[in-house]
Write a protein that binds this DNA or RNA. Structure first.
Lengths: 148, 148
DNA sequence: TTGGTTGCAAAAACTTTGCATAAAT
DNA sequence: ATTTATGCAAAGTTTTTGCAACCAA
């Protein structure tokens, strides 16, 4: 898959949407960012380049992207209320959040597929999606703790 | 571990707290409920028995319980913003949410332990906690879909 | 030119907080 | 008698929406 900007352009075209300067900035920023920003964080970042951008536009774009399955939103236990957006493409992956430094590590594991299959088998259900978040101390913070 | 009411009573005693009628109702309802209610849902339910109860009291009690590790809160992707409270004791377990009928099934699997260990090993981290939610169709809704 | 988009302001949705009063110990 | 907890109202936080002006196609 190509970048977020390219893909969005294509889809906008297909559905009679428009590539505005604002959308472009949001998409670009999201694409560059190797992070899981909240809407506010994203907004603050882009604001430096376009002082007229409005927060509601950020939200609207984020929702559109989510609906298009180009990003996904999740709430980490840390920040109770704010959603964080996953710039990455929707190749299913999961997250580890360091409770000390707040770093987020993305990961995937075949065990997750196993988990889904096991559930389907045990409950006769169909699992279409999954989201797991691990919480703990990253390597660096774990070491720091040891040297107290 | 004993029930939520008993355990709470014990802890309140230990820390100079008080078992009020409101708390009692909330705890009892939470204990009986095999569900993952939102604060509002819980409130509505108890309201039938005590018309004077205030929503803020529900929130306060819920927060206290969470702090005491007697319940845990999570946001399912379904209802964007509301937290759902896990009446169950904090034996780690995970959730499946049916995207059709919204039923929630709790489950656990040794694979989750494996996942955590694998992550620790790969990243040198320490995993203390985890939360996974599976989304899909429960057996009943899967069947219903087939008969369309 | 036209219909999708934006900025703005206002509302909505959810949760928390300050304070006077009520109630548990 | 104390001191914690409650009800109430008001504020806080995060996200959504209606609408006139604007701008990409």
């Amino acid at each position: 898959m190509t970048g977020l900007v390219q893909e969005s352009k294509k889809r906008l075209q297909a559905q009679g949407g428009r590539m505005t300067a604002q959308r472009y900035l949001i998409l670009q920023t999201l694409e560059e960012l190797c992070d899981h920003p909240t809407a506010e964080e994203l907004f603050a970042l882009i604001r430096e380049r376009d002082a007229t951008l409005h927060l509601s536009t950020v939200y609207r774009t984020l929702r559109w992207l989510e609906q298009e399955n180009l990003i996904s939103a999740r709430v980490f236990a840390e920040d109770r209320r704010q959603e964080r957006y996953d710039a990455a493409y929707p190749i299913e992956h999961h997250h580890f959040v360091c409770t000390a430094c707040k770093a987020v590590i993305e990961f995937d594991s075949p065990l997750m597929e196993g988990l889904k299959m096991e559930f389907e088998w045990r409950y006769g259900a169909r699992v279409e999606n999954s989201s797991t978040t691990l919480y703990g101390l990253c390597a660096a913070c774990k070491d720091k703790e040891k040297n107290l």
